[in-house]
């Protein structure tokens, strides 16, 4: 079941979730994506290049944020266009991890194309980590 465009309005909150990212999540994403940059799993390497700690892959944050729009739209096949700007790093503590708050709102509706633009906000430690995060999804 996909949302019906006639029942939607710009500004509607369509998704609100909290995602706990741990070091395990980073290792899992490294393996799945093939991005084995050690700043995503080694504290010593992250420290040596001046980072505040091990960082989540930007593409992992992008992938997690998309799921808010996908679950609402009814599947990954409904995504037509998806873009983000990486604005702040997500530092993942070895013990407590990192908590991401994801909110998806309808930013625009295109009745002719049968699409909704979901504007995604991702916060970590109270600050947004993605800019202009927009997923255009098809709706019924």
């Amino acid at each position: 079941m996909s949302p019906r465009i006639s029942e939607l309005s710009v500004g509607d909150v369509v998704s609100e979730r909290t995602v706990e990212v741990s070091r395990d999540s980073l290792v899992r994403y490294a393996g799945a994506s093939g991005d084995f940059n050690p700043i995503h799993y080694r504290d010593d390497v992250a420290g040596s290049v001046g980072l505040p700690g091990v960082l989540a892959h930007g593409m992992l944050t992008m992938g997690i944020a998309a799921e808010a729009a996908i679950d609402w739209a009814g599947g990954a096949h409904r995504v037509r266009d998806y873009q983000v700007r990486f604005t702040r790093p997500v530092v993942v503590d070895p013990e407590t991890g990192a908590t991401l708050e994801v909110i998806g709102k309808i930013g625009a509706l295109d009745t002719e194309a049968g699409t909704a633009r979901i504007d995604l906000t991702v916060r970590f430690g109270g600050e947004t980590v993605l800019g202009r995060a927009q997923a255009v999804v098809s709706v019924d």
Partner: peptide
């Protein structure tokens, strides 16, 4: 299996993946 592995890694739950 690569699609499933990647989907798990980005916390996907929708069954289409």
């Amino acid at each position: 299996e690569k699609v499933r592995e990647f989907a798990r890694a980005v916390f996907a739950t929708d069954p289409i993946s």
